[in-house]
Computed example of a mutant assay.
Amino acid sequence: MSILGVGFDLVNVTQFAEQMEKIGTTMVRDSFTAGERRHASTKSAEPARHYAARWAAKEAVLKAWASSRFARPPQIGDNPYPLIEVVNDAWGRPSIKLHGMAAEFLPTVKIHLSLTHDGDMAAAVAILED
C-alpha cells in the first residue's frame, strides 16, 4: 500500500449556486452524472450544498490525480468532471466511481473520500492509494 496523491478542495455554496443558475452556463451542471443530480435534488431542500460538496470531491480527486503525475503529463482530458462520479452506499457514505478515460488511467487505484459541508462552505478530501 502506498499513497499516490492527496487532494483537498473548498467550495463556497452560495457562489457555487449562483454559478449553476447563470443563464447559458451549462458546464457546471453538465459536469454531474444523472445519479449525482438525482441525489442532490432528493437529499434536501438545499441541493446546492450537495452539488457543492460533489464539486469539491471532483476537484479533490483531480488534485490528487495531478499530484500523483508530478513531472509527467496529466492525461486527464478536456472535461474530466463527468468521468468522476460521487456515489453513495445504502448508508449514505460517499465514494468515487471512475468512468471512461479516468477508469482506464487509474484501474487499480483505491480512492478514499471524505465530504463535509457546514454553513456556506463545502469541502472534500481525496486520497489515492495504490
Rank of each mutant, 00 (worst) to 15 (best):
D89R: 08
A90R: 12
Y51T: 06
E85I: 03
H112G: 14
Q75T: 04
F16D: 02
A71P: 00
A48C: 10
E85K: 00
V87R: 06
G35P: 10
K22R: 15
S95Q: 13
A53W: 05
T42V: 13
V13H: 08
R93F: 01
Y51F: 14
V86R: 00
E21H: 09
F16M: 09
Q75I: 02
G92T: 06
D78S: 15
I23P: 09
V86F: 00
T33V: 04
P107A: 11
A53Q: 07
F105T: 06
G77Q: 05
W65E: 12
V87L: 01
H39N: 02
D30C: 05
I76C: 14
A17C: 03
H112E: 14
K58G: 01
A53I: 08
A102F: 02
T26R: 06
E18M: 06
Y81Q: 07
E59D: 10
A60V: 15
H39E: 07
I111A: 05
V11Y: 01
E18G: 07
H99P: 07
A34M: 08
W55H: 05
A66E: 10
A40C: 15
Q19V: 11
P82Y: 05
N88Q: 10
A103E: 14
V13M: 09
A90N: 12
F32I: 01
E46Y: 13
P82G: 05
P82E: 07
S41E: 15
E36F: 03
E36W: 02
N79R: 13
F16T: 07
E21T: 03
V28W: 05
A57H: 11
Y51H: 04
R54S: 06
A53E: 04
E36M: 04
